[in-house]
Simulated assay, not measured.
Amino acid sequence: MIATMEYVDILDKSEQLGSMVMDSDIMEAYTNSQKALHKDKEAQKLIRDFQHIKEQYDDVQRFGRYHPDYNEIMKKVRAAKREMDMNDKVAEFKIAERNLQKLLDEISRYVAQSVSEQVKAPQEGAALTDSGCGCGSGGGCGCAS
């Protein structure tokens, strides 16, 4: 591909946009909450405990309800997740993460729509949800959702 001035200009502007995101209050809140989460020993213990029980859950999921420990593991996973989610540092991080994702979705949507209405872009946190659709459209395409 031959680099044209237009191409170079687009790259420069995309770098500027990236810098603006990195310098934003939303990114600062995300970074601060991430650092606070990593420093909090209680939160880290809850995360490790949840990851450990999640591994057991993944093993049980291969067999579903037929696994002898299915009900026990399901209860443990829900309890561990609830306990982890109730931690202040985890909750703050999740809020900051959603705010950052919302900003990135808005930017993506703005860029996509400035090109064409037919260009698909994430909508309202679709990147944080699993629609079951493999095409990445958030289920909007009508395939298995």
Rank of each mutant, 00 (worst) to 15 (best):
A29Q: 11
D49R: 08
K81A: 09
E42P: 00
L46N: 05
D69M: 02
K102N: 09
E72C: 03
E28T: 04
V77K: 03
Y70Q: 04
K45R: 13
A29Y: 01
G64K: 00
N87P: 04
D59R: 01
N71Q: 07
E83H: 14
Y70C: 06
K81W: 08
D23N: 09
K45I: 05
M86V: 04
I73K: 08
Q51N: 14
K75E: 13
A96H: 07
L17E: 10
A29H: 00
D69T: 03
E97F: 08
Q34N: 02
K76T: 02
Q61E: 05
N71R: 12
F50Y: 10
H38K: 15
M22D: 14
L104N: 08
F93T: 08
K54R: 13
E83F: 05
T31F: 08
I73W: 09
S108T: 06
A29N: 11
R82Q: 04
R82E: 11
K41M: 04
A96T: 07
P68M: 02
G64Y: 01
D40A: 09
H52S: 12
R62V: 08
A80Q: 12
E92A: 10
D59N: 04
L17N: 07
H67T: 08
V90W: 09
A96V: 03
T31A: 13
G18A: 00
Y30V: 10
S33W: 01
M20T: 11
L103E: 09
K75P: 02
D59A: 03
I47Q: 06
F93S: 05
A96Y: 00
D85S: 05
E83P: 13
R65S: 10
Q101D: 15
V60M: 13
R109S: 11
Y30G: 11
V60L: 04
K94G: 06
D85N: 03
D88R: 05
K54E: 12
F93D: 07
M84E: 07
D23H: 06
S108A: 15
H67K: 03
M74Y: 09
N32E: 14
I47C: 06
S108E: 12
D25E: 15
F63Q: 07
E72H: 08
M74R: 15
D25Q: 11
Q34W: 00
L46S: 03
R48Y: 05
N32H: 12
K41Y: 05
V60T: 07
R98D: 14
M86F: 10
A80C: 09
M86Y: 05
Q51E: 14
F50P: 01
Y57M: 11
I95N: 07
N71G: 07
M74K: 14
R82H: 04
S24K: 11
M20C: 13
